[in-house]
Design a protein around this nucleic acid. Structure first.
Length: 439
RNA sequence: CGGGGCGUAGCGCAGUCUGGUAGCGCAUCUGGUUUGGGACCAGAGGGUCGCGUGUUCAAAUCACGCCGCCCCGACCA
């Protein structure tokens, strides 16, 4: 993409409403624009990041055996009356009437709807286990939206729902998601820690929140230090025995504020105790038959008897992750995108667009990078060099290729690593070779 | 929802107390000089001063009402 043809409104100054670093950079780098309190438009750069995150989530869900579908944002109130949550959910649920005065709501979550789909289509225990998910916009009319997309009212969430014949099988489904979540966040360059958590209005007795440590996080959390850098499981056989991995993660203390047990925490050696702030990026629940019983989601068991299915639900805050990643990865100049979620991989900076040689080398580099499948943002505008450097540091692409007459006189271009600041001079061909082999 | 604050050009702000021609910086546009870390000079465009009602010869400024947004707390991906 050429900057001259792209839409990327950058802000030189920080809008007054942005308090935390991720919100400030999201506005300055032109990732989002606030439409009203807690509701955002996603501008092209932000949209590209959102889609990358979404795709990583999708791949890891699929790998763990979950199956994607898509449910609507608007739901009928009737189903929610059936589960009893129409009254329980309170003012956080946005209620709407259509022209026939029928009660609708903008879905804050989808347990009812998915259970309705399940009960009307699945009849036999032989169809289990089943895990269905979608990635869809949700609306929760938060009392106080804040921190940009970190606590929006409208937000993009991946929510999965598992159906199993008994508690043992349900626990296995839970474990699959547990591990898929570890892998998902690690792929985005995040260190996530699963922590014992409260179940809130979703219900159930078993629940973990996946927390990213950050000073600006909204949750107070407590855990054993060794959990932070614990390696993420690779090459997982999701059909095999997952217990050892789960045990490794859950035997060390880790809990959110609501589930905090001071005595257990104090039993950890002092130098391993970690009390910190964290951002909740995922939350998994096992809630047994809380929805399947009232909604009549049952299947025929081996003996022909009706069995209410055991359920769980598993959420990831996709739009929140954009903010969380920035909180975890930035410096005083701007965002530093992890490669996997960067809106472009390479920023190609032409320092002198009216110099024929510079232009020719840049155009050639751009064509070759694009042909090689490297996502490249090519600054072909006649801005001054300093302005371009600042802009590219702000938007945080992992690599910058800097091309100007001075380097070309030596037959060289410069490559800068945004994260480390490390620079190297090499020929254009070597630069292409290097950047191509990174992806 | 309780407490605090803000709404004036795309962004950041001054002006409001004490009513009297709507300003500054950045950004934008034009011309020129510049050009390897956010250039300089000259000129230009851009405003129902959040909305409404009232007071007044006169309202960004005073009064009342409403709306929107932000921050701190209790709730959540």
């Amino acid at each position: 993409m050429r900057v001259s043809r792209f839409y990327m409104p950058l802000l030189r100054e920080t809008p007054a409403e942005a308090q935390i670093v991720s919100h400030r950079y999201m506005l300055r780098a032109g990732l989002v624009r606030q439409a009203s309190a807690g509701i955002y438009s996603w501008l092209p750069l932000g949209h590209r990041v959102l889609k990358k995150i979404e795709q990583i989530v999708r791949e890891e869900q699929n790998r763990a055996g979950a199956i994607e579908l898509l449910m609507p944002t608007l739901q009928s109130a009737d189903l929610w009356r059936e589960s009893g949550r129409y009254d329980d959910y309170g003012k956080e649920m946005l209620r709407i009437k259509d022209r026939h005065e029928r009660d609708l709501l903008y879905g804050p979550t989808n347990e009812e709807l998915i259970t309705d789909i399940f009960r009307s289509t699945v009849r036999s225990y032989k169809d289990l286990p089943l895990n269905l998910y979608h990635i869809q916009w949700k609306f929760r009319d938060e009392i106080r939206p804040r921190f940009g997309v970190m606590r929006g009212r409208e937000f993009l969430m991946k929510d999965a729902y598992s159906f199993d014949i008994d508690a043992t099988a349900a626990r296995r489904s839970y474990n699959r998601m547990f591990i898929a979540y570890l892998r998902t966040f690690a792929r985005m360059g995040l260190k996530s820690v699963p922590m014992k958590a409260d179940t809130g209005p979703i219900g159930g007795d078993l629940s973990h929140e996946f927390i990213i440590l950050a000073d600006t996080g909204e949750s107070q959390v407590y855990c054993h230090r060794d959990l932070i850098d614990m390696p993420v499981p690779e090459n997982v056989d999701y059909e095999g025995d997952l217990d050892p991995i789960i045990r490794q993660r859950t035997s060390l203390y880790a809990a959110t504020d609501e589930k905090h047990d001071a005595a257990a925490f104090d039993a950890i050696p002092a130098d391993k105790r970690l009390s910190a702030r964290g951002i909740e990026v995922g939350h998994i629940f096992n809630f047994g038959t809380k929805y399947s019983k009232p909604l009549g989601a049952k299947v025929a068991g081996p003996g022909g008897e009706d069995i209410a299915v055991e359920m769980g639900s598993y959420g990831i805050g996709v739009s929140r992750l954009v903010g969380a990643i920035i909180e975890a990865s930035h410096d005083e100049h701007g965002i530093i995108w992890p490669e996997a979620v960067a809106p472009f991989h390479v920023g190609l900076i032409s320092l002198k667009t009216d110099d024929a040689k510079t232009r020719q080398v840049c155009d050639d580099l751009y064509a070759k990078l694009v042909n090689a499948g490297v996502e490249t943002l090519y600054d072909d505008t006649d801005e001054r060099a300093g302005a371009k450097f600042s802009a590219f540091d702000l938007i945080g692409l992992p690599w910058q290729v800097i091309v100007g007459p001075r380097g070309l006189a030596q037959g060289q271009v410069e490559i800068k690593n945004r994260r480390t600041g490390e620079r190297q001079n090499l020929t254009a061909d070597a630069a292409i070779n290097m950047l191509t082999h990174k992806h």
